[in-house]
């Protein structure tokens, strides 16, 4: 209650919370794009999603180590993760595309553990950060802080979402991906190499997560076990937004981010995640009711 009064006493705090929520929500959305894609096209729930994000962060640290600006880590991480995604598809994922969903959960869970331990071996379990070199803005007599790297993350998430949408709509491969998602058998009959489409989808997913990871290491921090929250958030965002709905993913991501910040402020940090899950249940129930109503019309 005290916290609620505080928000009314100092309304400017709302601005800070909302902005922080949008920044982190944008990064969640970025990680969720790929999950929506892979889930929608290949019917695989990629548990290793957060680990791709984590890996993207470490790739950025490599760029820093080489003496370059960490901002270059964004494309670098995306490229490396694209290649890794492709390789993982060729090694593991193709075996489970048509399998039971449970198998794919297990397989990607295995991949996620491998990646955690591998990064732990290579980089150690320390918490790592990279300095983007971008500054901070202090507004309203330093009652609101805006970190420029977070703004960049926000803009990038939008731009990448837009790019992805265009790519799926216009490009040859994008159309092939959509066709495969609708009916793989028909797509194959029409001469689409669905195996290549799957590989590309999985690789694009990894690349998006890599870019997100580069932003995470500059705006927040990473360590080998940082992945899980990103996997969980992506999963929730995709459930809320529905598969293959990129606009929905952005909206759900930002909404989730903001809701988390306000919940954390009002209820205390320990209830932040609990609140988010409660929200998820509420959304699912509401959807169920809506769907049931639509089914009534159809009868």
């Amino acid at each position: 209650m005290d916290n609620l009064n505080l928000l009314f006493a100092a309304p400017i705090l709302n601005v800070q919370l909302l902005l922080d929520g949008l920044w982190i929500g944008a990064i969640f959305a970025l990680a969720a794009f790929g999950m929506a894609l892979v889930w929608g096209v290949m019917n695989i729930i990629n548990i290793a999603q957060g680990e791709f994000v984590m890996l993207g962060g470490y790739m950025t640290l490599l760029v820093v180590k080489a003496g370059l600006s960490p901002l270059l880590g964004i494309p670098f991480a995306a490229v490396v993760l694209f290649i890794l995604g492709w390789a993982l598809y060729r090694a593991v994922i193709w075996r489970i595309v048509d399998a039971d969903m449970f198998i794919s959960l297990l397989a990607t869970f295995g991949i996620s553990i491998m990646m955690q331990q591998l990064m732990n071996e290579v980089f150690g379990s320390d918490v790592r950060t990279a300095e983007s070199g971008l500054g901070m803005n202090y507004l309203f007599n330093n009652q609101v802080t805006v970190s420029q790297i977070k703004v960049l993350a926000f803009v990038l998430a939008f731009a990448i979402g837009m790019g992805l949408w265009l790519f799926l709509k216009k490009s040859r491969l994008g159309q092939a991906i959509r066709a495969t998602s609708q009916n793989p058998r028909a797509a194959r009959i029409l001469g689409i190499d669905t195996s290549r489409v799957y590989a590309a989808t999985y690789a694009i997913n990894a690349a998006l997560c890599g870019a997100a990871g580069a932003l995470v290491v500059m705006a927040y921090s990473i360590h080998p076990y940082v992945g899980l929250p990103y996997t969980v958030r992506s999963f929730m965002i995709v459930i809320m937004a529905g598969l293959g709905n990129l606009g929905g993913v952005i909206a759900a991501g930002l909404g989730l981010g903001a809701a988390e910040q306000f919940a954390g402020f009002l209820l205390g940090a320990e209830y932040q995640l609990a609140f988010v899950f409660l929200l998820l249940v509420a959304v699912l129930v509401w959807r169920q009711i809506n769907l049931a109503r639509k089914r009534q019309y159809l009868k």
Binding site: L13, Q16, L17, D20, I24, V127, V216, Y220, S221, I222, Y225, V226, L228, P229, Q261, G264, F265, A269, Q272
Partner: peptide
Amino acid sequence: DLNDMTTTLT
């Protein structure tokens, strides 16, 4: 599992 403390700091 959180790597962000901005709400608390606010």
